[in-house]
């Protein structure tokens, strides 16, 4: 006979596991930019400015993802990321970092 406490908690634990599985459709990587004041865009959408931040690289709807960074005093930067490249970066512990060149 199963423990009644386990039976009460099972639906909660199962729901938590299900929600975790649903939300894991991507690879989280820290995205940073130099200079830190530069704005960062992923697939054409602005994701922020300033300090490094985690971003979920989701390849469910595209085969590659691009990251751009811009600052008024620098040349803009652009980089493609494929699934293989992101997996290799995870394996080697490499962050996504874009460094802008002065104009």
């Amino acid at each position: 006979m199963a423990d009644p406490r386990f039976l009460r908690r099972f639906p909660i634990v199962a729901s938590a596991l299900f929600l975790t599985a649903c939300g894991s459709s991507g690879y989280s990587r820290i995205v940073s930019v130099n200079p830190a004041e530069a704005s960062v865009y992923v697939n054409g959408e602005r994701i922020g400015q300033g300090s490094p931040r985690p971003h979920n690289f989701d390849f469910s709807e595209c085969s590659r993802i691009y990251v751009q960074a811009t600052h008024p005093d620098y040349m803009p930067e652009f980089e493609w990321f494929t699934l293989d490249k992101i997996q290799e970066m995870i394996r080697t512990g490499t962050e996504v970092k874009l460094t802008l060149r002065s104009r």
Partner: peptide, 9 residues
């Protein structure tokens, strides 16, 4: 199979 939005800076 690229992202739908093609954005240039």
């Amino acid at each position: 199979t690229d992202p739908r939005k093609v954005f240039f800076i």
